[in-house]
Design a protein around this nucleic acid. Structure first.
Lengths: 177, 177
DNA sequence: CATACCATGTAAGCGGTTACATGATTTT
DNA sequence: AAAATCATGTAACCGCTTACATGGTATG
């Protein structure tokens, strides 16, 4: 997800200043801390391209941005755009192991184990963190927090399943030779 | 996955020239076509940093690069590095929908459906393509091709599972209100 | 008053994409 | 001979990260 698109959607909620966009983005998507500088440079490009404009309600202290008509259109279009959904990401581990397999001398089975253990640890840590965040609303935190956790877990579990498959295919290929 | 790391691993297989690295990279990881220009600029940086050097076996036509000791070390370290495995990617759809949900006026249930249909179509198309690629070795293509397909499918299915979860949570939250 | 946080910015460098330029080699 | 591919490069721009600079505001 590009920060540019996220900014457009956040401004479709309400006019905001740069720093507020940083805070909202991190909270709503569970993202790691974003460099604020990037928000400002992106806003400049968006303004240049006519997707956002400066709200006169701003002052010396804060520069408030609002969506233009074109900007709102872009935000809503991005929400429904399915082109960037599945294909681009793939699996981080898969790419790495398919390359590693081609290197003579690499003990691929051991590398698989190393990554499996790390991914299992990450799942456990993520779930533990979820229980730790259990607070005010709902069974365990609010809807957004829960869904952020589940998105991370879902991706990691997909990679774990792929590792199992890869291992099985390797064994079966060796047996065939 | 960064192209820089992939280049190091590919050179751990064998000394290669830029164009060869492009071809190998796309074949081994199932990547979309890479801009060759980036390979050359990356090789320049790697050379500058002492991770690769020019093999005298090259000529006017081809510039052959080889790993330095430091470069080999970096390649092997990247293969075993689990730090970049799970956390960074998350889910493309999840980030989008968590933002979209916050926008007043967006019919989130319909947006969920739009993305679900697109993801299901992508899975079907990927599987169909897999059967189309059925060729020489093995039941359906070679090991690499099969695992590339499975990596794509695994990630998309994770996103589909997350969509189901998200929909269920939305319904249950509404019932609670 | 000192420290932390709010808020806006600039600079340098890597990473990636699109596009273009140039010429050699191979294929049809 | 024409067209496709091989092979190397350059330029411009966006995107992201790290780091630094500057000053206001709020809190202890």
């Amino acid at each position: 997800m590009k920060i540019r698109d996220a900014i457009l959607v956040l401004l479709a909620r309400q006019p905001s200043h740069g720093y507020q966009l940083k805070v909202d983005y991190e909270r709503l998507t569970g993202s790691a801390p974003v460099n604020v500088g990037q928000i400002y440079t992106t806003l400049e490009r968006l303004e240049r391209d006519g997707l956002v404009s400066r709200d006169p309600a701003g002052n010396d202290r804060r520069v408030i941005y609002v969506l233009t008509g074109q900007g709102l259109k872009a935000a809503l279009a991005w929400i429904e755009d399915t082109g960037t959904s599945g294909a681009q990401g793939r699996s981080a581990v898969a790419g790495k192991l398919l390359l590693a397999m081609a290197v003579p001398g690499v003990e691929i089975d051991r590398v698989i184990d190393v990554h499996r253990v790390a991914l299992l640890d990450t799942v456990r840590a993520t779930r533990r963190q979820a229980r730790g965040t259990a607070g005010s609303a709902g069974p365990e935190g609010n809807l957004e927090s829960r869904m952020i956790i589940e998105a991370e877990v879902a991706v990691i579990e997909a990679e774990l399943r792929w590792l199992d498959l890869f291992e099985a295919e390797l064994r079966s290929t060796r047996r065939r030779m």
